[in-house]
Amino acid sequence: MSEFKKFDQKNWVKTNLNYKKDSGSWAWILHRITGIALIAYLFMHIFSLSPLSQGRAAFNEFMSHYTTPFFMALEWILFAFVLFHSLNGVRIVLVDWADGAKYHRALYRYSIVIGLVMFFAMGYVMFSHEIHNLFK
């Protein structure tokens, strides 16, 4: 039999982008993105602790930057990433170790709802001073 030409479809980026996604796919994609972002954050965390080697005053001076509203908003987003990654991590443990695969959609919905509640609760805690000033 003569060898004929075949078309190799291997293009995982394209397939990932245009395949129809359900809750499981979104959970996986967001888990990857938040995971990579949290690794990047770890480097930044160690970098921002480095002024410790120059003494207390230098460290406090450096830390004062993080109390600006911009960095507080970033921290709130960081909290959202940690929340999603940890809640979805629990979901994955339940899928692999309990019968979570039978309830994976419900588990995804619950983790999103719990995550949103905790996200806004944390927002209130972080910005309570600003919110208080707003309605004074």
């Binding site: 809750s23 499981g24 796919s25 994955i92 170790w97 979570g100 695969a101 994976h104």
Partner: peptide
């Protein structure tokens, strides 16, 4: 297997494949 659940969504026989894989993992 990263429990993405695409296999369940596409299975025409509606088999919960990820559940079976999780039993093997256990």
């Amino acid at each position: 297997c990263h429990t993405i659940f695409n296999c369940i969504e596409s299975c025409p026989k509606e088999i919960n494949i990820t559940w079976h894989i999780s039993q093997l993992k256990k």
